[in-house]
């Protein structure tokens, strides 16, 4: 494990965090997809570095798969969805963006304190990254909470998965290939199903605002 690779992993971790905050601060759906693709690219880079350092060839496959799936395929599907559903407009968030980022900072501090004891247990590559990955998961979760439209929520869900993959590769040098394949398939299927869902929601309510779903409950 060289010094440089630790630094590189840390750098990619920070990129991931930066992109997570960028997602929080972004109103436009199209840009969200862009950020998601960039997140995927960061994960690819991080995985490749880990693969190179630990000489695990399977991680290269994992990186390649991430590249195809999360940088090209899913963003492409999402863009098509956006076009078909015609939802390119700015979406106001439920909480205003600065306060959301403030909460985000609190989350970062929280998750680091959570990760510190865990990181000290493992002999993994870079302990700080675990905290960042955890923070990214929480931030994506928060993004899902604070958006009122269905598509940003889907993107939040996907980016949460990205953060998890990153945590897995950086903290434990990758998951077994089978698990990885399974997750990838799950995500892909998930996107398809959610896409279908969105069409259904829109046909039902003529809008993608999920607040309409509140009307479904029994009075």
């Amino acid at each position: 494990m060289t010094d440089l690779s630790i630094q590189l992993i840390n750098l990619f971790a920070s990129f991931l965090l930066l992109l997570a905050f960028a997602m929080l601060a972004q109103r436009r759906v199209v840009n969200l997809v862009q950020i998601y693709a960039m997140q995927g690219l960061t994960v690819v880079a991080a995985t490749s570095v880990v693969a190179y350092v630990t000489h695990q060839n399977q991680l290269y496959y994992s990186a390649a798969m991430t590249l195809v799936l999360k940088v090209f395929l899913i963003p492409w599907i999402l863009r098509r969805l956006i076009k078909r559903l015609d939802i390119r407009w700015d979406v106001e968030t439920l909480i205003n963006i600065p306060s959301m980022m403030l909460i985000g900072i609190v989350l970062v501090i929280f998750s680091f304190n959570l990760a510190l004891p865990i990181a000290s247990l493992s002999t993994s590559i870079s302990p700080g990254t675990l905290g960042i990955a955890l923070a990214c998961v929480l931030l994506s979760f928060m993004m899902m909470i604070t958006r009122s439209k269905a598509l940003p929520q889907v993107i939040g869900f996907l980016s949460m998965e990205n953060a998890l993959v990153f945590a897995a590769t950086s903290a434990t040098s990758g998951m077994p290939m089978v698990v990885e394949l399974g997750i990838a398939l799950d995500v892909l299927v998930g996107v398809f199903i959610l896409g279908v869902f969105m069409f259904q929601i829109r046909e039902q309510f003529e809008s993608l605002d999920i607040s309409h779903l509140e009307n479904l409950k029994e009075e």
Binding site: L17, A25, P98, M101, I105, I109, F112, G128, I132
Partner: peptide
């Protein structure tokens, strides 16, 4: 956003250097 990004920058320095 600029202000908070800068704060996060300072935070990352301390966080990545933090030891249990």
């Amino acid at each position: 956003i600029a202000f908070l990004l800068a704060v996060i920058g300072m935070l990352t320095y301390i966080l990545l250097g933090a030891k249990a």
